[in-house]
Design a protein around this nucleic acid. Sequence first.
DNA 1: TGTCAACTGTCAGTGGCTGACATTAGCCTC
DNA 2: GAGGCTAATGTCAGCCACTGACAGTTGACA
Lengths: 220, 220
Amino acid sequence: METVGTVVGALPRPGLRERKKQRTRDALVRAALELIATHGYERTTVDDIAEAVDVSQRTFFRYFASKEEVALFAPRLAESHVIDAVRARPPDEVPLEALRRAVLDSWDDINAAVEQLVPLELHMRVYRVIESTPALLAAHLRRAAELEEELARIIAERERLDVDADPRPRILLAAFGGVIRVTERLWSAGDDLGVDAMRDLMATYLDQLGPALAGNWRAG
Amino acid sequence: METVGTVVGALPRPGLRERKKQRTRDALVRAALELIATHGYERTTVDDIAEAVDVSQRTFFRYFASKEEVALFAPRLAESHVIDAVRARPPDEVPLEALRRAVLDSWDDINAAVEQLVPLELHMRVYRVIESTPALLAAHLRRAAELEEELARIIAERERLDVDADPRPRILLAAFGGVIRVTERLWSAGDDLGVDAMRDLMATYLDQLGPALAGNWRAG
DNA sequence: TGTCAACTGTCAGTGGCTGACATTAGCCTC
DNA sequence: GAGGCTAATGTCAGCCACTGACAGTTGACA
């Protein structure tokens, strides 16, 4: 997308123009999240956000395709980390275990990346807004579905399977993704916020996947 | 919501006013689905739909909270059938089996209910539009999440568990719902449309849930 | 038949989002 | 380092989903 101009390297410090763009983008995200966390999603207008950063509304829409996109900026950051983590898993691991460890192990990286943008505390407040705002939750779930598809392909490749021929990768991801979302929701609904609490919850719940599907709960 | 006026019964034929309302609602749904299937969701405006039924746009919004709501009318019809079917399952069935049979067995009822409103063929065309339209898919997924929560509560009750204490009902539904959605998506993407094809696909995929979670795929 | 309540239409307005066009401001070359 | 190129921005006009307020119409029911 973005050409560098000098070398293919990538490291050389970008020009003033590029730095300005980055600053504007960051400022928009920060202002948006702050406003959304404070006043709620629907009561925050795009004009509010643009004004807070002192740019025109039109400029906002040149950085983000929609108001939803800014609000979901942090969750998107997390996704790319998970994808990388899954790709980095040793190939001898069993699929479910690879997913499980990828998510749990990349947790710290994710939080560090988020914190670089906004304070974690603000991020968590936004998260609650996401879960409680229908339009936002819908967009979040749709993105989650896309991520599942992506991960299913990665898992299929790991196992040298054809995603379209063998249903197991997609089914596994459907189940796995479902559990992740359940934990997200419960975490955001509870009082015990804090990122470690969420990781623990995920670990616990993932371990319950087998038992939940198992035949007789009453016997167990 | 709607009071009957005469008896609590419900059977007595509703008055003219009520019948007129029902006719308008049906006409709006039918016109909307027809237009959406033909021209796509985004290129169908609410004004188009209202005009096709010869009512004002304002009236449309008195019947439906949003344009999405009309488009997703049929899927909603299906949901209530599934809920009833799960409730009707014998209590000695294991949870996963109860869900599985409820969905598969209520299939014919669902299709009959849908057909009473619009031809199945039209319904299937709309379904493809839903899957391929981001905004609609998002709304659909959000509703699916709500349905999962509802069913999780029902299953918990069956098993005499506290949903908030035991994670298994929600986890089970997350996995189950995930598989259902995978089949919906694959079905809508393929060429072999037809409602029976979808039920068969669901049955097959649900059977793959265990194997997908099982340890080593390569061992077979 | 007249009164009440529900249903509908009209109108005005908000907010998300887009295309078109003019202006500004980095960048790069000579 | 002046000038041309191009990317980034602002302004403006407009579409569409959706809502509140008010007025007119039409079933319901005594």
